[in-house]
Write a protein that binds this DNA or RNA. Sequence first.
DNA 1: ATTTTCGGCAAACACTTGTTTACTGAATGG
DNA 2: CCATTCAGTAAACAAGTGTTTGCCGAAAAT
Lengths: 209, 209
Amino acid sequence: MSHTVGARQAQKQQSRRALLDAGLHLLADQNLASLGVREVTRAAGLSPAAFYRHFPDLAALGVALVEESLASLHVMIRSVLAGAGGSEELIDRTVDVIERHVREHQPHVRFLARERHGGVRQVREAIDTELGRFAAEVGAALALQPVSRGWSDEDLRMLAELYVDHMVSTAAAFLEAQDADPARERHIAATARLQLRLISLGRRHWQGG
Amino acid sequence: MSHTVGARQAQKQQSRRALLDAGLHLLADQNLASLGVREVTRAAGLSPAAFYRHFPDLAALGVALVEESLASLHVMIRSVLAGAGGSEELIDRTVDVIERHVREHQPHVRFLARERHGGVRQVREAIDTELGRFAAEVGAALALQPVSRGWSDEDLRMLAELYVDHMVSTAAAFLEAQDADPARERHIAATARLQLRLISLGRRHWQGG
DNA sequence: ATTTTCGGCAAACACTTGTTTACTGAATGG
DNA sequence: CCATTCAGTAAACAAGTGTTTGCCGAAAAT
C-alpha cells in the first residue's frame, strides 16, 4: 500500500508536521532565508540531525509550506465564485471571504506575502506558478458570467490578473492591520469594495481590447 | 556650517556610500534579515567595527536604503504626471516610465519589493509610510484632472490607492522578467496598459461613492 | 604648535551556525 | 523469535556570527 499508516509512518508524519508548524510559527517575524535548521528543530522539539530525515534543505521546507498555503487558497476562490448573485453581492462576498481567509490563515498568508519576492528562488517560483494557476481559474469563472459575452481570451486573462493582483494587495493590507486596528480593517474593506465596484463598472463598458 | 565638507566629512560619507552600495548589492539575492554586518563590511572593504561608526543596526542601514529608493520614486511620479495629453497618452507614458524605472533602478526596486513585507519591522513601516505619501501625491494630481469633477476626497483617495497598487504589481512583474525574457516584458506592458484603460473607463462612468 | 576629535583597524569575546558521524531502540517483516 | 529497517540522538567539526575593546594616525580646532 502506498500511504498505509503503520505506527511508524504516523510518528514520522507527526514530526514532519511539528517541523512545518514550528517553521511557520518562526516565519511570523522572520524570513525564510534567515531561518536556521537548528532554530526550527529546537522549536519543534527535535534534534538538529532529525531535520534531514524529512527535508534536504530549508528551501524544501519552504516549498512544502507553499503547497499547504495554496491548497487553502484554492478552497477560498471556489467559495467566492460558487453561488450567483448580482455584482454587488458578489463584491461583498469577495471582500468578506478575503478578510476571513486572512484572519483564519494568517500565518500561511503572511508567509506567502513575505516570500513572494523573498530571497529563496525555489519558493518564489513555486508561489508564482501557483498564483498563475489561480488567475487561470478566476479567468475561467469570469468567462461564465453573462457580462463577459464577446470578450476575447486575452482580455479575460488580463481582467483575471487585475482581480488577482487586487486580491493580493487587499489581503496584504488586511494582514498589516491585523491585531492592531479594527477600524482600519473596516476602512480597508470599504476601500476594496469601492475599487471592485469601479473595476466592474469599467468592465461593463469595455469594448474589445 | 551644517553640511560643509571638510576632507573629514567627505571620506566619512564615502565609506557610508560604500556600505550602502555593498548592502544593496548583497540584497539582490538575499533578505535584509539574513544580511550580516561582517558580510556588508567585507564587501565594502572596511573592518567590521567601522560599520558602527555609521549605523547602529542593519535595520538602520535598511531604513537609509528605503529613503534613497523612494526619493527616486517621487522623481518618477512627477515625470508621469507632468505634461498633459489624452488618457491614452498618459497610460502609455505611465507604463513606459514604470518599465524604465525598474530597469534603471533595479536594485532599489527589488529591495523595496523584497522588504515591503519582509522580516524587519522598521523597514516595513518606513516603506508603508512612504507609499502612503506616494498615494497622496497621486491623489492630488488626479484631483486636478477634469475627469475628477465632482469626486469626493474619499473616492479620489481610493482611486489613487488603486493606481498605486497597480503600479507596484506591475513593477514587481517587470522585475521578475528582467534579464530573462524580453518577450514577457512586452506582454506585461501590454497587459498593464489594458488594465489601466479598463480602470480609466470605470472612472469615467463613476457616479458618487 | 599643540591639543582634541574621530573614522578606521586588529583582536578578542562568547556564541551560534550547518552538517556528518556513529549510535540506540522501537516498530516492522519474515 | 530473530533480523532488519530507520526516525531520532548526542557529539564533534570547522566556520561563521555580532559587538566591544584599546589603539592608531590624520584631520580639525585651539
